[in-house]
Write a protein that binds this DNA or RNA. Structure first.
Lengths: 241, 241
DNA sequence: TAATTATATTAGGCATCCCTAACTTCGTCA
DNA sequence: TGACGAAGTTAGGGATGCCTAATATAATTA
């Protein structure tokens, strides 16, 4: 498959990017600098340099320094920009360790579509221009990663005001709440009825509507809407997610 | 570099994954199915099958059907799981077009570290188990992508109650608000003073603290804390971000 | 300035992953 | 049953991207 001058291979992009990066710190760029930076041997570098030269992306004289042409600079900047964005996304937003973020960014930067890259840039922008600075939900995410559950205050607005933890009666939930069934406290007919409706331990449900006086409650469970009277809802103990 | 049986190349992973996927729809998997699915020619498939056979990941008799061994199934499931997660992340969270998400997932699934993949899975989990269902901030993000600005209600809590749009006096902002300076309404000494402090059009600032009666206001601008009296803060017109 | 060391280049080779062309086998249907 | 088309295989080759070993040039220093 013939590659034109506009689309270059991932490897060439890496070399171009490295030349750009090294140039920023060191003024001069040599074969050994590139070899070290990219963790390859010198002959590999020389071979790639020949290709970059053919495509007019660099200037390189025998045994001399390596310089980017204007076209090379443009391309390198584009590649480097992508790299920086991806790393930022992985490290500063997803919270991945910096070194791993660096490696991953390096590896995937050549393979993502323009659309995805632009969306990621928008995502970063969305977070950085958040009116409150670091948005609350992002901190909740870090908490979630660390403790494997959401912080309580994050759930507070979905609980009735009187509960200290997140194990409550279904009847105490507000609209929009998602919860996992943990127990049914009735032993009679009601329990059989609830079980029959799908109110089984471990099942996830969501509160769709609550009538003014708390009865009936419209619950979405297993993709079905079920209407519970208050007496029934009080018998279902759930854990707010 | 010798690859052991545990780590296989990106291409082999793709073939394994395809066998798994085709098997789910069709019961039998043949060379031509794989060729079509992976958009390669038959001889390429045959070559890879030989390698997969050597590694005991598939069973394949001369001119016969292709079957995964138990080890092959395990590996394929792992790869496929990664793929599904990545696609979900790109499509359902970042909002990328489904086809593009599919392609991108395909391309990067082999290159992401375990850490990043796990974090992405956590991110999906974080969103899917959100007590309110689709979290508000995510919808705000989609709005942001579409309209290039946040919805007003998203900014409302950082504005004084009386403003209808997001161009307000600095003195109306609450703690935590980020805003961009749009104008200084004083023409005298105050203006020079403010300009001197860095209150230039276009500059981004953040409200750090507001004293009980609205004076002074502690503003973070260009990484410096500056304390403004109410009379000064009233002269700075800003756009809430 | 000549010897030594550091750096760059050339030559040739290997693994991956794809291809075309030619050939073999399988299944089906006249 | 045997011929024909579809599917699978073999042989050989090309691009990419890396390597080692040998060689050429540049830089340094005795």
């Amino acid at each position: 498959m013939a590659r034109n001058v506009l689309t270059i291979s991932p490897s060439l992009e890496d070399y171009l990017e490295s030349i750009f990066v090294i140039k920023q710190k060191k003024q001069t760029v040599r074969v050994k600098d590139l070899a070290k930076h990219l963790k390859v041997k010198a002959p590999s570098v020389v071979e790639v340099l020949r290709k970059l030269k053919e495509k007019n992306l660099i200037v390189h004289e025998y045994y001399g320094y390596i310089e980017l042409t204007q076209e090379g600079i443009n391309k390198a900047k584009a590649v480097y920009g992508r790299h920086i964005m991806l790393k930022k996304f992985l490290h500063q937003i997803l919270g991945i360790d910096e070194k791993i973020a660096e490696t991953d960014a390096c590896r995937i930067e050549h393979y993502l579509s323009k659309e995805t890259l632009e969306r990621i840039i928008k995502f970063i922008d969305f977070i950085e221009t958040c009116p409150q600075g670091e948005p609350e939900w992002l901190n909740n995410f870090y908490y979630f990663v660390k403790h494997k559950k959401r912080p309580l205050e994050c759930k507070a607005k979905f609980l009735g005001g009187n509960s200290q933890n997140n194990i409550v009666k279904l009847s105490d939930l507000k609209v929009g709440a998602k919860a996992k069934i943990s127990k049914i406290t009735d032993t009679g007919i009601l329990k059989s009825k609830l079980l029959g409706l799908g109110f089984v331990k471990g099942e996830i449900l969501k509160i769709e509507k609550v009538a003014p006086l708390g009865s009936p409650v419209d619950v979405l469970i297993k993709n079905t809407h079920i209407s519970l009277r208050k007496e029934e809802a009080e018998k279902v103990i759930v854990e707010v997610l």
